[in-house]
């Protein structure tokens, strides 16, 4: 690992100035990712996942967005690069699959046209060549009769097909970095599984770096090599999938694991739901942003309220942001949390 990683995000901050104050949607995020690997970013609604992914693509525009830090992609820093340069990378080197395929596709253009458009921006080819490519892509993502469906409009597709089409569009230029922002949230469970399978297969085929963003740990469980847990714009735990699933050390991660939906469990019977509401990003709670909701905040001698915990290495490659001591965390996990999660 003498070379720098393919994607290397360092101390990324994305703040928005609004009438009510500065929204610190992303506040000092760092992670890295290699080609062919998958990173899962997990966190509840409003934790800053989408802002992060749009930030990587350089889609925060206008005066109100303030982006700082470094985003190294294949050796160049996207934060300091010109807008025009980043635009050329978008769609070709890095692409994105959005959460809601219905609203994310233009209702007035056919699916084929939208794929063709994506392809032709970056490739100087004739319309008919691009069209062949689009049909090809639609076939690859598993759309039946792609020759016919290429002229259909988004509203004529089912939800799952639309998401496949979105994927086809994102992959049309063979991107090296693919970001999927909650690619399955809008779909029902069986289709979710199909789409996730498809993404895994395609990632292998294209050998791209993949970021899957979700609020549901279950989605990333099988796909991800690494998982990053976000809370209030900050990383609170970061490690390999094994670390997060078998040796989680942050009380918030425990909560997420407890609220993981499983096919064999009714969603209502979640065991350790995270109580309370997500924090405001303008007046972030003092100290550990999670402390108002954390059941263990009284075990840190008041530190939780007073001081922002640092992100520390608890094991090589496993980072945690919590004032509890390593022993406390491990004891709590082994004695209190894990048993409850296992009594299904």
């Amino acid at each position: 690992m003498s070379e720098s990683p393919f994607l290397d995000v360092k101390d990324l901050k994305i703040h928005f100035s609004t009438d009510d104050g500065v929204v610190k949607s992303v506040d000092g995020l760092s992670f890295s990712l290699e080609r062919g690997k998958t990173l899962g970013i997990v966190g509840e609604s409003g934790s800053g996942k989408s802002v992060t992914s749009l930030g990587i693509l350089g889609l925060h525009r206008g005066k109100s967005a303030n982006v700082s830090g470094e985003i190294w992609l294949d050796g160049e820093d996207l934060v300091t690069a010109s807008q025009e340069h980043v635009r050329r990378l978008r769609g070709r080197k890095m692409a994105m699959i959005f959460q809601d395929p219905l609203s994310s596709m233009h209702p007035f253009y056919s699916v084929g046209d939208q794929i063709i458009e994506a392809y032709r921006i970056h490739h100087k080819v004739s319309k008919s060549v691009a069209r062949k490519h689009a049909i090809d892509m639609l076939g690859r993502v598993g759309i039946p009769e792609p020759k016919r469906r290429v002229d259909s409009y988004p509203h004529e597709f089912s939800g799952g097909m639309r998401q496949r089409a979105m994927i086809a569009m994102a992959l049309s230029c063979d991107p090296e970095l693919l970001i999927a922002d909650e690619p399955t949230t809008a779909l029902d469970v069986t289709v979710q599984a199909q789409i996730l399978d498809l993404m895994r297969d395609l990632q292998r085929e294209f050998n791209s770096a993949l970021i899957i963003i979700t609020h549901d740990l279950g989605v990333v469980a099988e796909l991800s090599n690494d998982i990053l847990v976000m809370y209030a714009g900050k990383c609170i735990e970061y490690g390999s999938a094994e670390d997060i699933f078998y040796r989680p050390e942050h009380p918030y991660t425990w909560g997420l694991l407890g609220s993981m939906p499983r096919l064999d469990r009714e969603p209502t019977e979640r065991l350790l739901p995270v109580k309370g509401t997500p924090p405001s990003l303008i007046n972030v709670p003092s100290g550990c942003a999670f402390h108002p909701r954390c059941p263990y905040s009284d075990q840190t001698d008041g530190q939780s309220k007073a001081e922002i915990p640092a992100l520390i290495n608890t094991d090589p490659g496993h980072l945690v942001r919590c004032h509890l001591s390593r022993t406390q965390r491990r004891t709590l996990w082994e004695n209190e949390v894990k048993p409850v999660l296992e009594t299904q």
Partner: peptide, 25 residues
Amino acid sequence: EDYIRTARAKGLPERMVVVKHGLRA
């Protein structure tokens, strides 16, 4: 709208985003 964001994510130049995707709708 979300589809404008999509258009930008594809790497469309801003003028095209505005005219082809924004104005048309």
